[in-house]
């Protein structure tokens, strides 16, 4: 412990985490992959050879060729362009859903863990109920009430995901609440709200971050699944899930049609998972010591 202490002198915790993260090859690979995906989505109009909704009815279901690198779909749209543009939707869905569900879950988790008692009981029983359904099924149920569409799908997914934040944050809050600095804060006259958001929240932030990086890919997959089932993004949106859904019909005659959006989803999901694993490992040793 003393060795660890000496080594960390003059280094902030986030720097320390970054230092450990950087040594993790898989995590760095994930980060590079993600940066590339972000760059693609930002630069999609510049690098995409065609508009994602522009139809070339004369070139329907073309296999990959120099003209259409990833081939074309049943309306003659360039699959490469659609895959590139699709990254925008995937990232937006992933990040927004994760942030909305984190906001709900973290607040409830903090309250539940800090106050305990009956409030805790109620919140945790709701969490149990949400958790007892598979996310996709619950999202399906919510979307069928709200009606199809990308926004509604996002709301539905967020409503299925907040529970994991609530549970993790509650657990962490329970242990942080016992730390003496919380008691010291009360002794100098800090209010409960202030203790929750200035003392407890920063100390559970690292776990929240890890959870967000894990939840973004899940959100992307569920959104894609909803689109696949026709309940998410609607045509002609260049959504990867929607593309897969249509491609299914042409699986035997145009296999490239399903391969490219499928691979895109996989790469995006993997990059987040690698980062999540790396982040978790980089944060953990500090809490042990």
């Amino acid at each position: 412990m003393t060795e660890e202490k000496r080594r960390t002198v003059g280094v902030s915790m986030w720097k320390l985490t970054w230092r450990r993260f950087r040594k993790n090859k898989l995590a760095m690979t994930g980060l590079v992959m993600l940066l590339i995906i972000v760059a693609i989505s930002a630069l999609a109009p510049l690098i995409a050879p065609y508009s994602p909704i522009e139809q070339h009815l004369e070139d329907r279901l073309q296999p990959p060729s120099p003209k259409y690198l990833f081939g074309t779909d049943e309306l003659g749209r360039d699959i490469l362009s659609r895959v590139l543009y699709g990254s925008r939707i995937a990232l937006r869905v992933g990040v927004l859903v994760a942030l909305i569900s984190a906001a709900i879950g973290v607040t409830l988790g903090l309250i539940s863990g800090y106050y305990g008692g009956i409030i805790d009981e109620v919140i945790m029983r709701i969490v149990d109920i949400v958790w007892s359904f598979p996310s996709l099924i619950l999202a399906l149920a919510i979307v069928s009430i709200l009606g199809p569409g990308l926004i509604n799908a996002m709301v539905a997914i967020a409503l299925t995901m907040w529970a994991s934040y609530a549970r993790i944050v509650r657990g962490e809050t329970l242990s942080v609440r016992e730390e003496l600095y919380i008691e010291a804060a009360r002794a100098i006259g800090e209010s409960d709200i202030r203790i929750l958001f200035s003392y407890i929240l920063p100390n559970v932030m690292s776990s929240i971050l890890v959870l967000i990086t894990y939840n973004i890919p899940s959100a992307i997959i569920i959104a894609a699944s909803l689109s696949f089932l026709g309940l998410g993004a609607q045509p002609p949106t260049p959504d990867w899930g929607l593309m897969l859904s249509t491609a299914r019909t042409y699986l035997t005659i145009a296999p490239w049609y399903s391969i490219f959006p499928g691979v895109a989803i996989m790469i995006t999901v993997l990059s987040f998972n690698f980062i999540g694993d790396g982040l978790r490992d980089a944060i953990q040793p500090e809490r042990v010591s």
Partner: peptide, 11 residues
């Protein structure tokens, strides 16, 4: 308090 490390908010 007794434990100086736990008495101060690490953040």
């Amino acid at each position: 308090f007794q434990d100086p490390k736990s008495s101060l908010n690490p953040r």
